[in-house]
Design a protein around this nucleic acid. Structure first.
Lengths: 356, 356
DNA sequence: AAAACAGTTGAAAACGTTTGAAACTGGCGC
DNA sequence: GCGCCAGTTTCAAACGTTTTCAACTGTTTT
């Protein structure tokens, strides 16, 4: 069972392969000729339509197998103007997106539509509005519908159903799924207040997303209702990004009166807070309490585990898929669906103790 | 600047939207009619072909803008049997894939081909061979070429260029890019040996991937060459997955003579080792040294930072894209390209000290 | 004035598929 | 023999493009 004596090594793999030449593409016509029937019959046979004799189907299938025929998606989707593919558009492969996708996939199994995750594969940030371009380009041709994750721009009117998850605010726009960010943010802030903290900072999210604005709003409300003073220097940008969160933290902790607790608008930036704290020799939660938002799996792996506001990400994905299906079936759908958010207390928050 | 007095709340967004109805699709014919020219002229105008008068181009562009015309990808790619899209097929959105994609995107900017990342969006593991199905389905119709990440099955012969990153071993198959796993694994194991460890365990990777087998081979070689005894119980499966890695670790540490160092076949399972160690109250690297493989960004965020073997993931992605371009240009390409792997020593490894 | 020409434009074929309607089978009852 | 039927199969049109080639301009050359 051991590999100690394995003969094959990686060394002998470096051979130059001949120039690539495409195997000739086999069309429905080839199959028809090979099976001795018309193309129409082949089409009906492979699409399991009624009105084809058992024996014929058998013969066609054999020809298909023998020739390795695969229907051209382009051709068939052109003919029916339907591709039976639902696209998932995402900006990046972050944990948030991954969780949502898991939820969508779970819901989509055994349904009539194939699923495709699509990213413009943009490395840098200079290409804004790629969702709009992609949507237009793919819409109605290779996609029958799309679920867009955290779109940064107003989505265009396209000839297919669209659902947005955590969308940019604005009038009109597609149906959307979002969690109750206001209640969640208030609960997070209140949790820190209950622990006795009075200097509580907030690290903002992506300011182009409604969710981020609402979370900031929730933070402000909780602070105000507790009668704590409002201090603009306690609010800094974090862009939902880990390293931005770390930068923001360094700025906050350099203040003359640094905060003793931080509520970050999402988990990534909260993890950035922990990075920066570790780097500065601060212990969490002894020296600094941190709360995040989203509850991505990473929260559990952090040391200490991150207190956060849990969004039901998988459920949101599933809900988005159900909504898409309704729209494809020409049913009425909720314009905006809100799912609950729930505070999950873990190890990154502790009662305030007077500093050294 | 504060949001304290923001009027808009999330509450007023829940309205039922009317049943979805598709905006009529605008075709090239609509544009032609609107601009008072023929469809042929429109096509030439939008594709910036020679032989169209300046004024006509202007008129067509105006019509295009006015009507919001977008060429149907399906139709045009059917006509020229080329879509100018290179697909990236990946199993999941793990850090490994993300890094490689970054490399591909960086290389692909300003090239003639658009990039698309596809995942079958499968949540569970029961669907093996999805790469094969996707490849066949997409090949030659909406994809001109594909880069496949860690394919688990033999890739089919399809009518387009394919490059595999970290592929399954076997004769034939597409050109592939992989790092020198043998040297990397030997270096990792040797590092632990140099630190004085004698009971060194190995957590295997996905046994369907060549890379995992070669890393195991490298481990075995280093152990043998150091004259250390070969102990089968020191090799357990980890499947390249974090929680499997944790499970494997629990098993290893429950042995009568547990290892004092672990070389995991990739970073995810190495992080799993750290999870399990933390859970059992062991301190890394004092009680247990850990080495991973890949050098995904997470390594830096772990506490302590993970010692690992760095693969040039982005460079591998870039290389894959360059290879694809060569193949599309009908040039000869290397059948198998190997890039170097390099040990990066961080905080998760320390000299062996006799246990308590 | 005819011919050649460069610059534009348009008609039509082709890409591979699906589908509604038409045409072909025997078999049956009249 | 005729009409009718259900069960099959094929014809041909359509989907939205791109591209070849012919046709049409107006201008210049012979």
């Amino acid at each position: 069972m051991t590999l100690l004596h394995r003969e094959t090594t990686v060394e002998n793999m470096s051979i130059v392969s001949p120039e690539f030449e495409a195997p000739k593409k086999v069309t429905i016509e080839d199959v028809a000729r090979h099976a001795g029937v018309s193309v129409a019959t082949v089409s009906k046979a492979v699409n399991r339509k009624y009105g084809v004799a058992k024996a014929t189907i058998e013969r066609v299938n054999e020809a298909v197998r023998e020739l390795g025929y695969v229907p051209s998606m382009a051709a068939s989707s052109m003919r029916n103007s339907a591709s039976n593919v639902v696209g998932i558009l995402l900006a990046g492969f972050d944990p948030f997106a991954t969780e949502v996708i898991k939820g969508i996939s779970a819901e989509a199994v055994n349904k009539d539509y194939e699923l495709m995750a699509y990213s413009a594969a943009i490395a840098d940030d200079k290409t804004v509005g790629w969702e709009r371009d992609s949507l237009i380009r793919l819409g109605g041709t290779i996609l029958d519908a799309a679920i867009v994750l955290t779109p940064s721009v107003a989505l265009p009117e396209v000839a297919m159903p669209i659902v947005a998850i955590d969308p940019r605010m604005g009038p009109g726009g597609p149906p959307s799924i979002a969690c109750d960010s206001l209640a969640g943010a208030r609960a997070a802030t209140q949790h820190l207040i209950d622990l006795g903290h009075t200097r509580i900072a907030h690290i903002r999210g992506r300011t182009d997303l409604t969710s981020a604005l609402i979370r900031e709003q929730g933070y402000c409300q909780a602070i105000a209702e507790a009668g704590l003073p409002y201090d603009p220097s306690m609010i800094v940008d974090g862009g939902y990004r880990r390293n931005w969160g770390a930068d923001a933290t360094r700025k906050l902790l350099a203040l003359p009166e640094p905060p003793t607790a931080i509520f970050a608008a999402n988990d990534s930036s909260a993890l950035g807070v922990m990075d920066a704290a570790a780097e500065m020799g601060l212990s969490i939660p002894r020296d600094l309490s941190v709360v995040g938002f989203d509850d991505v799996p990473e929260c559990m792996y952090a040391t200490p585990a991150l207190t956060t506001v849990a969004q039901p990400l998988m459920e949101m994905g599933a809900q988005a898929y159900r909504t898409i299906l309704s729209m494809l079936g020409h049913e009425d759908v909720e314009n905006s669906l809100k799912v609950p958010a729930e505070l999950v207390v873990r190890g990154s928050t502790a009662p305030f103790v007077a500093a050294a």
